[in-house]
Design a protein around this nucleic acid. Sequence first.
DNA 1: AGTGGTAAAACTGTCGACAGTCGGCAATCG
DNA 2: CGATTGCCGACTGTCGACAGTTTTACCACT
Lengths: 236, 236
Amino acid sequence: MASSTVAPKAFIQQQNLVEQVADYLTQAIIQQHFLPGERLSEVQLSRDLGVSRAPVREAARLLESRGLLISKPRRGFFVRALNAVELQDVFDLRLCLERHAIHRLVERYTPEAKRALEQQVDMLCEAAASNDGTRRIEEDLQFHRLMLHHAGNERLLRAFDDLTHELRLCITLITKTHEAPDTIATSHFQLLEALDSGSPDACREAIDYHIGVARDFVVKGVGETGEHANEDILSR
Amino acid sequence: MASSTVAPKAFIQQQNLVEQVADYLTQAIIQQHFLPGERLSEVQLSRDLGVSRAPVREAARLLESRGLLISKPRRGFFVRALNAVELQDVFDLRLCLERHAIHRLVERYTPEAKRALEQQVDMLCEAAASNDGTRRIEEDLQFHRLMLHHAGNERLLRAFDDLTHELRLCITLITKTHEAPDTIATSHFQLLEALDSGSPDACREAIDYHIGVARDFVVKGVGETGEHANEDILSR
DNA sequence: AGTGGTAAAACTGTCGACAGTCGGCAATCG
DNA sequence: CGATTGCCGACTGTCGACAGTTTTACCACT
């Protein structure tokens, strides 16, 4: 009864314990093996994973900086729970970053960037057709990450990566319904077309629409799934 | 009623070693007690501070997530060194965030926000007149933080706070020359005027100019101070 | 003198242990 | 019967120690 739900497949290699624990925790949180607001016991985790508490603590601090955990002094670490307002904030910041990125990108749209993005859309379509929800989300995020990457600002990319962790949380928490594959495809093709046109205004319009759809999708999901994220359940 | 009539909040200092170490390291880095690219020895730090290595490691990881330190596996932590490109990136992201913030702010510009910002400009002018460089920088950053705060997006504010740590590094590294106090004042009054006008375009123009000046100031400083940040001295 | 190899020193990653603190439960008092 | 207080278990914060690795210093050899 020490750890019934947690998979005891923790055969951890000898190197980079912190990163491995961080990855394990990230996956566990995203896949909802830990509920939002749930408290994580350091001793229990270290027992389950077969490591000492030091790497667990450092990994937890890493996840805290990524917004997946919240630490309360003398109380421990808790799984982050997002309420509706925080959800809106996340998508608003995403819009902020991606607008800026696509404006930079359209000014330096190289054939290499074009090719990379088109290739990624292909991967995305493939994933969407395969009905693998997790993979679809990852390919989608990867497309946007590529946009940020080719925008030529490493710091901007880092800010996006930071946000991505919370974004994954939002999306995976909600997404049970499946978008139609062709919807996804056209939605991203519009971005490529806007970039091809070379018009900043067209790019802005495209990215606003694109992220607006994603936001509405998630926000609607919250409304449907219930008040779980609407109320302030242990968000602090 | 318990004995909370008096609020002795400064009594308990014995807690939070990690934060104390993090603050110490932050100050030491900003004040250049550690040179950019320099390696920090955990044992030496723990000896100097009279604590064990565990809190030092956790504090170092915190600073790493803030972009002040860089960790190389099995090698330790190194003080972050910014080259010219990274410097440009930082200011580009700052522009991105503040544009978005001021656009949000002008749409919900309450009298409270207006009063808070005006008050902060007063503090800033005062600091500028006092010739205390560090305090001037802090009051300046605080003004911008207030803008972000009243923009009504907590996540946006957090992104700004994350960036602020690097911003402090850039600014403090360079700023030896003093801006004229009235220059600072007018520069911020322009922002207030743009907000009063209620015009998003005016706000954008004001913030672009404002941050452009700051960026040029720092970049010029880099050019003058020498190639210290221009070359890729231990930036990785 | 320059080079290659080896051994020692120092450092990081990790571990188990100890002390102080927090939350909950029960006994006590009004 | 309800509120308060003291106690108990569990947990976090911190520490010192050990093992493996990297760096450095030194020495032999060309």
